[in-house]
Amino acid sequence: MRHYLSLILYLAVCLLIVVTFQQNWLNPYIQIVMMFIGINVMLSSSLNLINGYMGEFSCGHAGFMAVGAYAASLLNMGLFTTTSVFGHSIFIGPRYAVFLFPVTLIIAGVAAALVGLLVAIPSFKTRGDYLAIITLAVNYIVKSSIENIQVIGGARGFMGMRQVVTAMTDMIDIPWLMIWILAFIGISIVALKRFVGSTYGKGVIAIRDDEIAAEIMSVNTQRVKLIAFMLSSGIAGIAGGLFAHVLGYINPGTFTIMKSTEIMVMVYLGGMGSLSGSVMSAILFTVMLEFLRPLQLFKWVLIPLLLIVLMLFRPEGLMGNRELTDVFPRLRRLFSSREY
């Protein structure tokens, strides 16, 4: 029983959220904010694998998100809806959207992971600042290629994902999008947690501490890096797919360095190498952004300022290198070794 406590707790929270959504106890604005929180949790925890655990400086995470967003939207629009782009929906109608939506999301994740290879392969030879440039370049390349493909809207963007969501709610009227967000948060957090705890994860941490020493100690650094980068970008891709469906409209201008910086801020706010820190900071940061909305333009002066102050007085972020269970040891007894 205790073994599954975290799972049960998570499911209970999910159920609570889904019921509140279903009964419309919260106004739509708060619902949207909650969805963004979920997406940001996925983004920041996946980037934490690279920037925190592996100690690299990836500043192009939004690029993978863009790949996932476009892949998922194109697949869903092509499969489930009738659009001017693809004509009549290809061999499957809107009825199957409910069942195939997670499948298309996972395909989007795989597509993003494949683009992640663009970073993973150069990372065999490069480190640090040079790798940072490569991630930056990949972000620009992705954005620029999308801008140049006119079929999917180019710089104008791509819209109509609402239809897919409507198709799902037409079948069974429950808040599908939030359910899938919650499900994929669960899956990705567990996957990351397990990955970090596995032998590969130890390898990732060894690479952060000293790559050469790790290699001498028989860590297959290429393989570890490949898997870490692909896992991270894959989760970012899934998050991007969900993002596209929450917003209902995407354009390449959304996925710029600015977005990547936002995700990086969440990682460093939460603490490098702390999954629970990333989750907390994603929630905190998103809520803070919404609360500071009345400040308008000064919001983006205040937030960097807060972060600089944080860096000055607590440079390791909220949680530092520790997990929630390290800060509150009592939790560990409760959750055994499988928090989240």
């Binding site: 400086f57 910086t261 333009l297 000064f298 983006w300 937030i303 960097p304 300022l305 600089i308 440079p315």
Partner: peptide, 26 residues
């Protein structure tokens, strides 16, 4: 002076850039 890691200074630099940009805009 505090001996913080390089990455933290890089983040601070990024944030300082954002402050300059958006402060100017505001």
């Amino acid at each position: 002076r505090k001996g913080a890691g390089r990455l933290y200074i890089v983040i601070t630099a990024l944030m300082a850039g954002l402050i300059l940009e958006n402060g100017n805009l505001a």
